[in-house]
């Protein structure tokens, strides 16, 4: 957990450019990752999927990057999150690339 991520993380662009999965059955997950419960999507139409909690929770530790369109939280009166990972002292010197506009 001590490794630092580069500041210009490419994830937001992956988030923005990744295409929508149209057929859940076409996705093979790595070993150890559970697929969504099959019975939730028996008659699923394209892109209209239901997901169980255990499946969704697997993304929690991975998808940490702020989406490009998430506004700076202080602008909407919401204090920025006290993140679980350590923050540098002084605060103002450490802004994520997406919050810097």
């Amino acid at each position: 957990s001590g490794t630092k991520q580069p500041i210009a993380a490419p994830l937001p662009s992956a988030l923005a450019t990744a295409r929508i999965i149209e057929d859940l059955g076409s996705v093979q997950y790595p070993e150890g990752i559970k697929s969504p419960r099959v019975e939730l999507n028996v008659n699923a139409k394209q892109g209209k999927f239901r997901y169980d909690r255990d499946f969704l929770l697997q993304f929690m530790a991975i998808c940490r990057e702020k989406p490009d369109s998430l506004p700076p939280l202080d602008a909407i009166g919401l204090e920025p999150a006290d993140q679980n990972y350590p923050m540098s002292r002084g605060g103002s010197g450490r802004r994520s690339s997406s919050a810097a506009m």
Binding site: L15, I20, I62, C63, R64, P67, L78, P80
Partner: peptide, 22 residues
């Protein structure tokens, strides 16, 4: 605050806002 339509974006939002206890 934001509109999203994927699982991945949901978590990106969730992990960057305060939980209700705060």
């Amino acid at each position: 605050v934001i509109t999203f339509d994927s699982v991945e974006e949901f978590w990106g939002v969730y992990n960057n806002i305060v939980p209700p206890s705060k």
